[in-house]
Design a protein around this nucleic acid. Structure first.
Length: 489
RNA sequence: GCUCCCAUCGUCUAGCGGUUAGGACGCCGCCCUCUCAAGGCGGAAACCGGGGUUCAAGUCCCCGUGGGAGCGCCA
């Protein structure tokens, strides 16, 4: 795996000393979708707002599902959007941010919990657990561990383990009372303690379960604020108990509502249509995606396109929506249009790959059509349209051209021949109107179609100036021929 | 089934007891323009239902309904 933090991130790390630290902790099991990405973004915004750090932690403790290419894809997506991390891949040792490199950390914390009797060995077979769940479900009760092994004497448990009997480690949860915490976005939360069973924190193979590794790392790494999906809401009390037993400070948690697809169904790792890589490939600009996502389920921002710092300034977790938010392509497109309108030349030129135009007109073309396009690849359509030898004419174009006669195009062609260099459309338009006897749209529409094949586009005077004179002639003569045919017919 | 979360225009949302229920995207119309885009102006469009509390409820409470999550040796 190759991961590098940007220079800017390293600078941030050195220059900031604020205690706030947020994190994004994906497991490399699939690609990021917009919901994941929004979670990452919100954590970045919170860190930025308070001048804190953002940590990218790779949660690959479950080795079987680890996937190096997924890992790279996640990093690539985040980097594309400029969501750089101050701590994580590319910075320091893997032990600082990759769970598969931290096995000893989890083992030693597990030992501590065991020693404090905050956790216990459970020898229940998977079969027994399955039967237990089935029975509980049948009785209409919530399926959860019944505490069968909770009171096993430590001595006996140790003997059974020594004898090679497989066992998992479970965390002792309070049996009664209420578990409370204050959620950054949802406010005060209360869960009855008896609704929660004792969760497995270490698997039989000795690896740490998600609940455990995730909370422990937050505590150990000094994470102060965690914004995560609402699917973790009910994990929170367990993680808090866990950290308390270890004497670690739990971060403040805030739970974000889901992002659903356009049909209202939950986004999955398989939702290809809303995948980041797909949006990238489709030509969406990172600023557009960022500005759209920053407002999804979030109010309080103005209608301007902002960079990360601008978005961060107005970020406030308690203002985040608690209800699910639906992905809406037309709103993303709106931000894409704004982003395109404000894009700078340097970021647009690489997208212009068509080679049918003179090198010295590349920038002029971009400047001319930028206000008319939504995606950079459309530059190539315009390049073809204005500079290619061949121009395909639609039925509409043909009809518009045939609405004038051959003389019309011939006159314009001849007149334009006399023009040298830049033509001043303020002068030339009235001149052509007088020459052809056609005013306004009667002149412009057929001319536009003859020259570009389209009925709309940038100001025609500018289009004419940008075009190569020979191409202009070819097209006018072709139009004259077509109009002539119409006369004959 | 149990526990928890959620519910305002099609969509994203403002609203934190008294509002002509506001904005944005999209849509429609007009203006501008050769045209498109942009911009300007205008329009259609919402409080899930039922009970309370209150002089007054989108706003507070309860019950429904609908949606979602969790209840795993997944993360």
């Amino acid at each position: 795996m190759r991961l590098h933090a940007s220079g800017r991130s390293i600078m941030m790390r050195v220059m900031t000393s604020n205690a706030v630290k947020t994190r994004f902790a994906p497991s490399p099991t699939g690609k990021l979708h917009l919901g994941n990405l929004r979670t990452a973004l919100f954590n970045v915004l919170l860190a930025r707002r308070d001048g804190g750090h953002f940590l990218l932690r790779i949660e690959d403790s479950d080795l079987a599902r680890n996937d190096a290419s997924a890992f790279d894809a996640i990093a690539a997506d985040l980097r594309w959007l400029g969501l750089d991390w101050d701590e994580g891949p590319g910075i320091g040792a893997p032990q600082d941010w990759q769970q598969s490199a931290r096995a000893e950390v989890y083992t030693s914390a597990a030992d501590k919990l065991l020693a404090a009797d905050a956790a216990y060995w459970c020898f229940c077979s998977q079969q027994r657990l399955a039967e237990l769940r089935a029975e509980q479900t049948r009785q209409g009760k919530a399926p959860r561990y019944d505490g069968c092994c909770a009171s096993l004497p430590r001595r006996e448990a140790d003997d059974r383990r020594a004898a090679g009997e497989p066992a998992v480690l479970r965390l002792r949860m309070p049996q009664s009372g209420m578990l409370e915490f204050n959620d950054l976005v949802r406010g005060q939360q209360t869960v009855p303690a008896d609704a929660l069973g004792d969760p497995v924190i270490q698997r039989a193979d000795g690896t740490a379960a998600f609940l455990f590794a995730n909370a422990l790392d937050d505590g150990l790494m000094g994470v102060t604020h965690v914004l995560r999906g609402e699917d973790h809401l009910s994990n929170t009390p367990r993680q808090q108990v866990l950290l308390r037993q270890l004497g670690l400070t739990a971060p403040a948690y805030g739970h974000l509502s889901l992002v659903t697809d356009e049909a209202g169904a939950p986004l999955s790792k398989r939702s290809g249509s809303a995948g980041i890589a797909e949006l990238h490939a489709a030509g969406y600009r990172p600023e557009a995606v960022l500005n759209y996502l920053a407002r999804l389920g979030n109010a309080g921002l103005d209608e301007q396109l902002h960079d990360l710092d601008g978005l961060a300034r107005a970020f406030e977790p308690s203002r985040l929506a608690r209800s699910p938010a639906r992905f809406d392509r037309s709103q993303l497109d709106h931000w894409q249009s704004l982003a395109m309108a404000q894009a700078d030349m340097a970021s647009l030129l690489p997208a212009l790959t068509a080679d049918c135009l003179p090198a010295d007109r590349r920038e002029s073309l971009v400047a001319l059509v930028q206000p008319n396009i939504r995606f950079a690849h459309e530059l190539n359509d315009w390049a073809q349209r204005l500079f290619a030898d061949e121009l395909e004419l639609s039925a509409d174009a043909v009809a518009a051209i045939r609405s004038r006669d051959a003389e019309f195009f011939g006159q314009i062609d001849q007149a334009l021949l006399e023009a040298s260099g830049e033509i001043d459309w303020q002068v030339w338009r009235p001149r052509l109107e007088a020459l052809t006897g056609c005013k306004g749209g009667k002149l412009m529409k057929p001319l536009r179609f003859a020259l570009t094949g389209l009925g709309h586009g940038p100001a025609l005077g500018a289009v004419i100036n940008l075009m190569v004179p020979e191409t202009r002639r070819t097209r006018l003569q072709r139009a004259a021929a077509m109009a002539g045919e119409a006369d004959d017919a």
